[in-house]
Design a binder for these strands. Structure first.
Lengths: 120, 120
DNA sequence: CGGTATCCTGATAGATACTG
DNA sequence: CAGTATCTATCAGGATACCG
């Protein structure tokens, strides 16, 4: 039994799952889209630090993985909206669990109150 | 508020959590150790494809992250055992969730019954 | 506005060999 | 048996520019 994602085979479902959001900006994107449908520009604005190429690339990969649905409106100027598929929404609880576990490493040593950027 | 792991700062607990097991062999290692304490050689034998340097390196990173505890027996030849810390064991449910989600991508298209290698 | 192509760089993975 | 060091290949991330 194998697990198939984007033409790549994984012997283990866990490794596949991790590969889905191991990309540099994918978590941020998924967190954004868990809040609902968003335009490309909104994502770009909300995810601090991401550049144009990266955002487009990671979105395409998420789309190919069946996590994200892309909707193109044939207007000028172009308008493109992204939202999670049902499969993608299934990541909600996974993300919650990861957040919960990650919070063990919390520190307020820095006086800075940066909050959790990028909608996470 | 920031999240600190191995001297690196993360604005988001989820990204930190992912970084913990994003390494090439870390999932396999954690899955192995969820089964209980293991010697280095056992890990090497059970995790197919990993090489010596990689295994040692990833183990050290997991150790530094406080996920894995390393126990050295001062004997000749050397004997070293690895086990999960309490923090590491807390990854159990996370891993379960990831597995459950990853199984959506299951396929038996290949006649091969490779099973889920590496103890996952 | 949004997508794609090119190029560059640093990080990561792997092979190999030497050490106690 | 287990750890470390060195070298090399590969890839992901990022800056930039051009296209529809």
């Amino acid at each position: 039994m194998m697990y198939l994602l984007n033409g790549k085979e994984y012997p283990c479902p866990i490794e596949l799952a991790v590969s889905v959001f191991a990309g540099r900006w994918k978590i941020s994107i998924i967190c954004q889209l868990l809040q609902g449908k968003k335009r490309y520009g909104e994502l770009k604005k909300n995810i601090t630090g991401v550049n144009h190429k990266m955002l487009a690339e990671q979105l395409r990969e998420l789309e190919e993985a069946g996590i994200v649905k892309r909707e193109v409106y044939p207007v000028v100027p172009p308008k493109v909206e992204y939202e999670l598929t049902e499969l993608g929404k299934g990541l909600g609880p996974v993300i919650d669990y990861l957040r919960e576990w990650g919070e063990h490493f919390q520190t307020d040593a820095t006086g800075e109150s940066l909050s959790t950027a990028n909608g996470s």
